[in-house]
Amino acid sequence: MRRNQVLVFDADDTLWENNVVFERVIADFLDWLDHPVLGPAELRAVLDEIQTANAVTHGYGSRMLVRSLRDCVERLRGRPATAAENAGIDSLAAVLIDFQVEPVPGAVETLERLAGRHRLLLLTKGQVEEQQRKIDSSGLAPYFRALEIVPEKDEATYRRFVASHGIDPADGWMIGNSPKSDILPARRAGLNAVFIPNDHTWVLEHTELDPSDAGVLRLRALPELLDHF
């Protein structure tokens, strides 16, 4: 266990639950659609395809989801959503703005102890205002030396982040729940990584990790970081 390493944390679904709320909205939306032919799995496949495309041009977060729900209505019904349908979608999605962020069990104690041993940084993607609201609501900001909100977490983002914060990749660790955004691009940028799976990780963040990659530490829960750092 070495001291004075740089631990870079993901936020959503690593430090607090987030996607579980989005999934509730999606489940309610699919029920609300009440499609006469397609079942929930088929409807979800259509929505996932729309979200994949919208994420490229509109980023991540609640605004992108609401846009995707409206686009889904238009595709399935062959016309733009009506004013009443848009109002229904807005009502379903209202919880995304109002829900209270709560750190995952053990997050506060874990960060407090790690901050005395290492330099902690936060790197999260999404809409700036939305992500900042969640950071502020979580109460975890004081544990981090720096916080960045970026539109995408790819290899270029990590290389820039490493350079701008003076991180020696050999002493840097990206900690998160998403193989696609947290683990693989960080590894390609030369960082080590800690993968902490979350049962509610967004399906579009799933991908396979190399089980033989010695640069990836796999843990079951956030507090287990204290056993290694």
Rank of each mutant, 00 (worst) to 15 (best):
M1I: 12
M1S: 12
Q5P: 00
L7D: 11
F9A: 11
F9P: 08
A11H: 08
A11V: 12
D12V: 09
T14G: 06
L15H: 09
L15N: 06
W16G: 07
W16Y: 08
E17S: 08
E17P: 00
E17M: 04
N19S: 14
E23Y: 03
V25I: 14
V25D: 08
A27R: 14
F29W: 03
L30K: 09
D31N: 14
W32I: 04
W32S: 02
W32D: 01
L33I: 15
L33S: 10
L38C: 00
A41H: 09
A41Y: 09
R44P: 00
A45K: 15
V46T: 10
L47Q: 02
D48L: 15
Q51C: 11
T52M: 07
T52G: 07
T52V: 02
A53Q: 08
N54V: 10
H58R: 10
H58V: 00
G59H: 12
Y60H: 08
L65S: 02
V66F: 02
R67C: 03
S68T: 04
S68D: 07
S68R: 01
S68C: 05
D71R: 09
D71F: 01
C72H: 13
E74D: 14
E74W: 00
G78H: 09
A84I: 04
A84K: 10
E85M: 05
G88E: 10
S91Y: 00
S91P: 00
S91A: 15
S91K: 04
A93G: 07
A94D: 06
I97P: 00
D98G: 13
V101D: 01
A107L: 05
A107D: 05
E109D: 15
L111I: 03
L111S: 02
L111A: 05
E112K: 14
R113W: 03
L114P: 11
L114R: 04
A115M: 12
R119W: 01
L121C: 13
E129N: 04
E129Q: 06
E129G: 00
E130D: 11
Q131D: 07
Q131V: 10
Q132V: 05
Q132Y: 06
I135G: 02
D136L: 10
A141Q: 13
A141I: 10
P142V: 08
Y143C: 13
F144C: 07
F144I: 12
A146T: 08
A146Y: 02
A146V: 02
A146S: 15
A146C: 03
E148L: 00
E148V: 01
V150H: 01
V150L: 12
P151Q: 13
P151S: 06
P151N: 13
P151T: 13
E152I: 15
K153P: 08
A156V: 05
T157A: 04
R160F: 00
I167V: 14
I167F: 06
P169Q: 06
A170V: 08
I175N: 05
S178Y: 14
P179C: 14
S181K: 06
D182W: 13
D182F: 14
P185E: 00
R188Q: 15
N192D: 03
N192M: 03
V194C: 11
V194D: 06
P197S: 10
T207N: 04
L209W: 07
D210V: 05
G215H: 09
G215F: 01
G215P: 04
R220V: 05
L222Y: 13
E224C: 10
L225T: 04
L225D: 05
L225Y: 04
